[in-house]
Design a protein around this nucleic acid. Structure first.
Length: 876
RNA sequence: GGGCGACUAGCUCAGCUGGUUCAGAGCACUUGGUUUACACCCAAGGGGUCAGGGGUUCGAAUCCCUUGUCGCCCACCA
């Protein structure tokens, strides 16, 4: 059978994915094994795969595949999120393209369009995850708006309401004028913006006095209901109790005093607009000021804006400023940078707005979640630095605005039976609501027709915060077999940007609804950036097409590329060159397989060099296994991968295969061949989580004649005792081999020409690897001698001296120069060691081990100096 | 404004509670190589006052202080 010398991922990947699916290897059912569970951070149902997803899901797949190999019952639950605000915006935009105005549709009609959209695009991203090799249990795929998922959300809402934790309140909230909905505080991103500070002159009633006020938002003067000065500010003491006149609209407003006002800032007086600023609202409440809302829901001015009615706030700002300037009210403008809240989703500038909204009280709910992470350490965050961030947020947690003025989402299960603010009941269904309403009103005549459901939908995060429970139906059926078996889940892999949105809230809901943690470890990945450290984004166009990358480098190549340099929590500087390195690695392994596969096996004796090679690699493998285990325990996946990379590239391909490789067209002995196969298989086992396709392909090639199960469900290698002595003996031997190669290079001796070789074994080194040195150095023999060999090139490893006899002329001067340099260096080194050792405080203060180490260095250096001197004198 | 974290080779990063893992890795680079597994390869190399300054110590990349630069999170100053 002809095997191509280049590994072609495209020929392989779909084949194995189908094979795994067909054999249902990804599927999990509760059994007697230990469970290992991950729930996917559900991507937006209509989203497409980007680099962040690739990284995130590669990590999850590595973890889940490793757990599967370790014999655990691995279950990775996939799914998508309805992403109410983003999806609704997309649907509205699409309708607009079709000439349909959302407002002309009924809620049900709109939802039908939204579901059509969801069915059309929904799940594309999940199909893309399959290309990446993700071994999710697709039978368990969930969507946050599935009937059972929505029912869980509603049930939780009702429960929290009945516990008194959900309330409806008239509050200042974050209003997104573009999406025309409120947002939670977490969905507001503060950005620094360059703006102006406008100095406006207000007239004082019945007086010639004026008052200058600095504001960033002149258009809000129509909502002014007071001027505030600091009571301690003597500059304004003459204005106490007087009234000011708002320019343009000429409303007369009181001048109030409050020490909230900073005398240093601006002019030391503040215009108070209670409808459009949270602080002003607080001031207004304190001083019982009128509240004038001047904006429509799209943040254009309403009738209070007079001639500016209908203008957008930013247009109005300019227009108002212009009129104020013309009328002499605007005395000056200064540039001013300030932080502006923007919508996470629509990027629109947030407008503080007073409205009736639903809130969840967080303070008490947060307590067990704080304790779990920071005191009991039941949940561990990787990297640990995020615990500080978590603490800060949780300890200053504010009530969560959970209502959205959207249709795409779970509709709030509150039913109004009258016009009063409190005339509502909360229930899981309208029928239940009716019963409660009847009791509450003592009115048996009420029918469902008298009830109107609240039109708001719930924040998407109010459904995803239940994800680890609701995907197992643990809200509706708390004792069911799945939730009992899979919950709590093990690891959660996500980005730090949703630590508050999602992770913290899942912890909260986990303790509230299951009484225990939702997961044990949280692996927070970094952002994927480009080489220039820029965030990858659609606008910049610097985000590569995920599927194209997979086409070009293979899923395995991309996975390796992503993980080669991505420590938890550190941003990942993505470079396609890394994927190419991954692809190259795949090809390297492929060719190692080709080499072994091509050998003819014969019943011949095993050479001593092969026997020791096998023992040595086994030691290296076990040593690496310990390292890898340690890296995994710390979620250092890059380091685990790098350990494997070096093990396979250097130790396996570079050394081991060269050690056992039979001479050209010679057969290999059975013992060595079997050992090589078994070693290759172990390599494939540990590498499988990172490179599932390539490893499965080779595994199946090997096992063609043995008919075993697929690699995906094979067993992770067992840990054995590491033979450290063998490893260090070889490290010495490899130094000798390097020395030989260097001389070959310097003297242009082709590898195929065997050379003579002698050694003065001052170190008393063992001869374990002599056969290997002979083979890899292509030596005629290794002669142990006690005298320096004349007419030879020399090199030293520690105090051992090695000689390669040369037939031609030896350049004595060059040899002397080389030896002298080495001698000078070693003497300098010895001097520094001896200086340390002659320092009494060092000898007294340092631990014994360290002092012994220094003494050993001294002895080694002395021995080496002796041999160098001997060589030198013999040359002279 | 408050907090957190980083700064080590050209690049990306390891270096835990001070001393044999102490100056490292991978990539890149230089030089040589048609050694029949692989040029997506092999071999041999070069390269860093561990951001600057100070301190503690017998000993500091590692601990402390300070300056600088960058990043992130939080925060209602018009």
């Amino acid at each position: 059978m002809q095997i191509p010398s280049k590994y072609d991922a495209s020929q392989v990947e779909d084949k194995w994915y189908d094979y795994w699916m067909k054999h249902r290897y990804f599927h999990s059912e509760p059994d007697e094994r230990e469970p290992y569970t991950i729930v996917i951070p559900p991507p937006n149902v209509t989203g497409v795969l980007h680099m962040g997803h690739m990284l995130n899901n590669t990590i999850q797949d590595v973890l889940i595949r490793r757990a599967r190999l370790q014999g655990k019952n691995a279950c990775w639950v996939p799914g998508t999120d309805h992403a109410s605000i983003a999806t609704e915006a997309k649907v509205v935009a699409r309708l607009k393209e079709q000439g349909i105005d959302k407002n002309s549709l009924s809620r049900d009609e709109f939802l039908k369009h939204a579901w059509d959209w969801t069915h059309e695009y929904g799940g594309v991203i999940l199909e893309q995850l399959k290309k990446l090799g993700c071994s999710c249990d697709w039978d368990r795929t969930k969507f946050t708006m599935d009937d059972d998922m929505s029912a869980s959300v509603i049930k939780v809402f009702v429960d929290l309401y009945n516990k008194g934790l959900i309330y409806r309140g008239y509050r200042m909230v974050n209003w997104d004028p573009e999406a025309k909905t409120t947002l939670s505080d977490e969905e507001v991103i503060h950005e620094e913006r360059q703006g102006n500070l406008y100095y406006l002159q207000y007239k004082i009633e019945d007086s010639e006095d004026t008052l200058t006020i600095a504001t960033t938002r002149p258009e809000t003067i129509f909502g002014d209901t007071a001027i505030c000065i600091n009571p301690n500010d003597e500059r304004f003491s003459h204005l106490r109790g007087k009234k000011a006149i708002v320019p343009i609209c000429n409303r007369v407003i009181p001048i109030i005093e409050d020490d909230y006002v900073d005398v240093e800032f601006g002019t030391g007086c503040l215009k108070v607009t209670p409808a459009h600023d949270e602080n002003d609202k607080a001031l207004g409440d304190k001083h019982q000021l009128e509240v004038i809302d001047i904006f429509n829901e799209d943040a254009s001015l309403n009738s209070f804006g007079m001639q500016f009615e209908g203008q957008d706030r930013f247009m109005a700002r300019k227009a108002v400023a212009k009129v104020l300037e013309e009328t002499g009210v605007l005395v000056k403008t200064e540039t001013h940078t300030n932080k502006v809240g923007t919508s996470e989703r629509t990027k629109a500038v947030i407008e503080p707005r007073l409205s009736d909204q639903w809130f969840l009280k967080m303070e008490d709910l947060a307590k067990p979640a704080i304790k779990a992470v920071l005191e009991d350490r039941d949940i561990k965050l990787f990297p640990k630095k995020f615990e500080n961030t978590y603490r800060h947020w949780m300890e200053n947690i504010r009530d969560w605005n959970i209502s959205r003025q959207l249709w795409w989402g779970q509709q709030i299960p509150a039913y109004y039976y009258g016009n009063g603010k409190e005339d509502f009941v909360v229930a899981e269904s309208i029928e239940e609501a009716l019963e409660i309403a009847k009791k509450k009103t003592n009115n048996e005549q009420l029918t469902t027709n008298n009830l109107t459901q609240d039109t708001d939908a719930l924040d998407t995060w109010f459904s995803s915060w239940l994800w680890p429970i609701s995907v197992f139906d643990g809200i509706r059926n708390p004792e069911n077999a799945d939730i009992s078996y899979y919950y709590p889940t093990n690891d959660l892999v996500t980005g730090p940007d949703i630590l508050f949105f999602w992770v913290a809230r899942m912890i909260v809901s986990g303790y509230e609804y299951k009484g225990e943690r939702p997961f044990e470890n949280v692996y927070l990945t970094g952002l994927v950036r480009d080489k220039q450290r820029r965030k990858m984004s659609k606008q910049l166009g610097n985000s590569p097409d995920a599927l194209k990358l997979i086409e070009e480098y293979g899923a395995d190549g991309v996975r390796v590329g992503l993980l080669l340099s991505s420590a938890a929590g550190n941003d990942l500087m993505f470079d396609e060159a890394l994927c190419n390195q991954g692809k190259g690695f795949a090809n390297k392994i492929w060719n190692a397989f080709r080499l072994i596969n091509g050998w003819e096996v014969a019943e011949i004796d095993q050479p001593g060099s092969s026997k020791i090679a096998v023992a040595w690699f086994e030691a290296k493998f076990q040593n690496a296994l310990v390292d890898i285990e340690d890296h995994f325990s710390k979620y250092r996946l890059s380091d685990a991968l790098m350990s494997m990379y070096k093990l396979i590239y250097d130790d396996f391909c570079g050394w081991f295969l060269e050690m056992i490789k039979p001479a050209y067209q010679q057969p290999i002995d059975t013992k060595t061949y079997d050992a090589a196969i078994s070693i290759l298989e172990n390599n494939l086992r540990i590498l499988h989580p990172f490179m599932p396709f390539l490893t499965e392909e080779i595994w199946q090639h090997i096992t063609e004649r043995q008919s075993r199960e697929a690699l995906i469900v094979a067993k992770w290698p067992e840990a054995k005792v590491v033979n450290k002595d063998l490893i260090s003996e070889f490290d010495f031997a490899s130094g000798v081999i390097s020395g030989i190669r260097t001389i070959r290079k310097q003297k242009n001796i082709a590898f195929k020409d065997a050379i003579g070789f002698s050694v003065i074994n001052n170190e008393g080194s063992k001869k374990t690897f002599d056969a290997i040195i002979k083979k890899l150095g292509n030596l005629e023999a290794i002669d142990y001698v006690s005298e320096a060999v004349d007419g030879a090139q020399t090199f030293r490893v520690k105090s051992n001296e090695y000689f390669v006899p040369m037939t031609g002329h030896i350049d004595v001067d060059t040899e002397i120069k080389k030896l002298t340099e080495e001698l000078n260096y070693t003497e300098g080194f010895l001097k520094s060691v001896q200086k340390k050792l002659s320092n009494e405080r060092f000898v007294a203060g340092a631990p014994e081990q360290v002092v012994a180490g220094e003494k050993k260095k001294e002895a080694d250096a002395l021995a080496k100096i002796e041999t160098l001197k001997a060589s030198l004198s013999s040359l002279k």
